[in-house]
């Protein structure tokens, strides 16, 4: 089996690579590439993302044909895709970080700044927070409710349809921190930095 981590200059992805390689051992082949053919023929795709919504969308668009290939993979062929952090946020129709920017439009909704209640809550939301699992998700198999995950973000995904939400976390309000829509999965937290529990989530995704 091939799992492809999309390398599109979206910032630092070495931790994502390390964690997937750790979990995959020698059973699964982990590719790190922006090669469209390899992405399309892959069994699973991981879409990481760091920095701003705009910078990640711009970086995706800079690689000719990449968005189309991802659409083909996830929407037409319905193969499993996991978005991490801004990778998840880009599923939205639109994001408001820096400036209004169009997303992939896979899960209708918007990405807006976390309401810090006039400075009561520090931003970025950095550190370990507990997740509240609100629906069965394949990537949460054997993950206990209220597990700790590592977060670092200032913007949140607000999906229009609430049935895609698989987990929330409490920071100033209930922030959506995980979604599942058919073959599309996303985590706002960083499973690659969330210790053994995070690696378990990665393993669940690889084992789908």
């Amino acid at each position: 089996m091939n799992v492809t981590i999309v390398d599109y200059n979206s910032g630092n992805i070495s931790s994502v690579i390390n964690s997937f390689k750790e979990v995959a051992k020698n059973k699964v082949n982990i590719e790190v590439t922006s090669d469209l053919k390899k992405i399309k023929s892959s069994d699973k795709v991981v879409l990481p993302g760091q920095g701003s919504f705009k910078s990640c969308v711009d970086a995706l668009n800079k690689i000719n044909g990449l968005t189309d290939s991802l659409n083909e993979f996830a929407i037409n062929n319905k193969k499993p895709l996991l978005g991490i952090c801004v990778g998840l946020q880009m599923f939205a129709d639109i994001g408001y970080e820096e400036t209004e920017t169009k997303g992939l439009g896979w899960i209708s909704g918007k990405v807006s700044k976390i309401d810090n209640q006039g400075g009561k809550f520090k931003l970025p939301h950095i550190g370990w927070n507990q997740i509240n699992i609100v629906k069965d998700s394949k990537i949460f198999q054997n993950i206990e409710n209220n597990s700790h995950m590592y977060f670092v973000h200032s913007y949140e995904f607000v999906p229009n349809e609430k049935n895609v939400i698989s987990a929330t976390t409490d920071y100033s309000s209930n922030i959506v921190c995980s979604v599942e829509k058919e073959n599309i999965f996303g985590t706002q937290f960083h499973p690659e930095k969330s210790d053994k529990t995070g690696l378990k989530i990665i393993n669940n995704f690889i084992s789908l």
């Binding site: 910032g11 630092n12 760091q50 920095g51 701003s52 910078s55 970025p124 950095i126 973000h153 200032s154």
Partner: peptide, 8 residues
């Protein structure tokens, strides 16, 4: 911070 994001 522009290039890599404030988070790092």
């Amino acid at each position: 911070s522009k290039k890599f994001g404030s988070q790092c």
